[in-house]
Write a protein that binds this DNA or RNA. Structure first.
Length: 591
RNA sequence: GGUGUCGUGGUCCAGUUGGUAGGACGCCGGUCUGUCUAACCGGAAGGCGCGGGUUCGAGUCCCGCCGGCACCGCCA
């Protein structure tokens, strides 16, 4: 049906008769001569219809945007070159133009920049756009490169069930009712976590899978209800075995797919260090600034907002320096306070060190008091290493809260003031806390997941001080995004039971939900560990886009709907009955 | 669950202190042998997401709902 691709016409084809298929990207009709830009997935080439050929000329004059065409013609060098396209030196003189299928009543033209709603509803048109073709191809290349790397090293690609068992911990499950077992449900996997551990126990040694995962939680710019992980697991390994291997993989794949050079080796930092310096467990190291502890400067002042946390072992008083920030307006400062508030700040103090040496602050009267001949404000200026013209934000309160909102502020300020460098900054974050206390549930929850091994080997020691237990988990972070996370797993049944107990999962529940794992751990389970990478996020980073939707062919909206197919949708009564499912009446307006 | 923001011809947007809708692109018709999302001339096309309310009068103000997007909660 065709001999060449439009976008690949070049010197080699000059003088040749070619047959091209594609879509009409544009028509330029001069009355006497007609140009049609024919586009396929490789690019665009110009078709010329001369009036000498009556048949061709007639068809060409009527070509519309996005008509699907087959063109036969001869390639020649153009008299006036178009530098904007790779094929700009050549054109195809048509001897036949066949309208394979007309395009009518398009909801939008491809170059029109329609809004997201339109793009999602007519995704097949949106995907025709070269930008989308390019992003999707980046993703394809990424997956190919990863597979090639893994296959060459003996990793074994094994599929795991999509219809599986609901888990009590973690995200909300997507459920699938069982027809055969009335009232019972499968769950779609949040990740193949337990299966890959069982594969290690089964002796497969090194496993990987490009696995679809499902989590029924609210969406974000970088989160979809179904997403793809490169899931990996290794037997007989410790942290560095896993980390060094996948670090080399990521470095090579980024070079190959994106032409991106990543540091060798990646810098490493503990979770605590990351929180202290950057207020985040996934610090963006493209931004130079760090949080500075200034508790020492305010320990003895009367201003309790500062002095109380400064003297509390679980408290923190931290400053963020904004170079040249003295020019920030009152309105901008209020904006930053509001931003910090979203992340839990009860208030945000600012202090300006003017170009003229004048100190102004939102809490000046509390900070101007002398102590040993030196004002608190000047001590803050020294502590935060301020220069004239700088500003600092100061946050005070609980250590984790302060770190978090000051970290959020650091990102926001850097983005607003153009302080995010054009660079690639990977790192490992290690030594995560094992547990986190959930106030609403009044119990500990696993920070990573319940199968992550603690650093201590002894279950009793773990139980003695769970709040300070450190895990053998690790995250790979790139430019402020968590691209991969994993851990060394628990491989001894006593430890696994102890962790379940600490999480408030009783003996009976552990048996019912994870009995198969506990049994397997008793049958010679090898030490093992692994990691999973977010394929979508990797594709976003390499592709240079902010929205996960841009790297998924058919994504869902923030309310988890598919605007093209209109899923989810009601199910008829017969189908429901077969599944033993009854739909509850919606309450409230519109119900 | 919450906050913010947007919703106006097919598409993207503008619509001042409330006075009865406007532009660009596209579309339709016409002119034109070298353009680059050709150019030029002419034309058609919406009652402003939906439902209430205030008002003599509502894209413009108020209330509720729906939808897109971003964020908080949530995402082991």
């Amino acid at each position: 049906m065709r001999s060449h691709y439009c976008g690949l016409i070049g010197q080699a084809e000059v003088g040749q008769r070619v047959t091209l298929c594609g879509w009409a990207d544009a028509r330029r009709d001069h009355g006497g001569v007609v140009f049609v830009d024919l586009r396929d997935h490789e690019g665009i080439v110009q078709i010329v219809a001369d009036p000498d050929n009556d048949q061709v000329f007639k068809v060409a004059s009527k070509v519309g945007y996005e008509d699907c065409l087959r063109v036969i013609g001869t390639v020649r060098v153009r008299s006036n070159i178009n530098e904007k396209i790779p094929t700009g030196h050549y054109e195809v003189v048509a001897e036949s133009i066949e309208l394979l299928n007309a395009a009518r009543d398009l909801p939008f033209a491809l170059h029109e920049n329609p809004n997201e709603e339109m793009r999602l509803k007519y995704r097949y048109l949106d995907l025709r756009r070269p930008e989308m073709q390019k992003l999707m191809r980046t993703r394809i290349k990424l997956v190919q490169a990863l597979r090639r790397w893994l296959d060459a090293r003996g990793f074994q690609d094994i599929e795991t069930p999509i219809l599986t068992k609901a888990t009590p911990e973690g995200a909300r499950d997507y459920l699938v009712p069982s027809r055969v077992h009335a009232g019972q449900f499968y769950a779609l996997p949040q990740s193949p976590q337990l299966f890959k551990q069982l594969l290690m126990i089964a002796g497969f040694d090194r496993y990987y899978q490009i696995a679809r995962c499902f989590r029924d939680e609210d969406l974000r710019a970088d989160r979809q209800p179904e997403f793809t992980q490169l899931d990996m697991e290794f037997a007989f390994v410790e942290e560095r075995d896993v980390q060094d291997t996948v670090e080399a993989m990521i470095r090579e794949v980024f070079r190959e797919v994106g032409g991106i050079e990543l540091a060798d080796p990646f810098p490493r930092m503990t979770w605590h260090e990351a929180m202290r310096c950057y207020g985040s467990d996934k610090p963006d190291l493209r931004i130079e600034s760090e949080l500075v502890d200034v508790a020492d400067a305010v320990k003895h002042i009367e201003f309790k907002v500062f002095s109380d946390p400064a003297n509390d072992p679980d408290g923190r008083v931290a400053a963020l320096r904004v170079p040249g920030g003295a020019d920030l307006s009152r309105k901008q400062l209020d904006g930053y306070a509001a931003h910090a508030a979203k992340f839990g700040a009860k208030g945000l103090v600012w202090l300006k060190y003017g170009h003229d040496g004048m100190i102004t602050s939102s809490a000046l009267k509390h900070l101007s008091g002398d102590e040993g001949g030196e004002s608190v404000a000047s001590r803050l200026i020294v502590a935060a290493q301020m220069a004239q013209g700088d500003l600092i934000f100061i946050g005070a309160g609980k250590w984790t809260t302060v770190s978090t909102f000051m970290g959020a502020l650091r990102l926001k300020v850097a983005q607003d003031r153009g302080l995010v460098s054009q660079s690639w900054k990977p790192l490992w974050v290690t030594d995560f806390p094992m547990f986190e206390y959930d106030e609403t549930e009044q119990r500990y929850v696993a920070l990573h997941h319940p199968f992550t091994a603690p650093k201590v080997d002894d279950a009793e020691a773990l139980g003695a001080d769970p709040a300070h237990a450190v895990s053998r988990g690790y995250d790979m972070v790139l430019n402020g995004a968590e691209i991969g996370g994993g851990s060394i797993r628990i491989h001894r049944p006593e430890m696994q039971s102890a962790v379940f107990r600490l999480l408030g999962i009783g003996e009976a529940e552990a048996r019912a939900k994870f009995g198969f794992l506990l049994d397997a751990l008793k049958m010679g389970a090898p030490p093992h560990g692994g990691i999973a990478f977010g394929i979508d996020r990797l594709a976003m980073l390499i592709g240079g886009t902010e929205a996960i939707r841009d790297v998924i062919a058919f994504p869902k909206t923030t309310s988890a709907q598919d605007l093209m197919t209109d899923a989810p949708s009601p199910i008829d009564a017969r189908q429901l009955a077969e599944l033993h499912v009854q739909v509850m009446q919606r309450t409230g307006p519109g119900g």
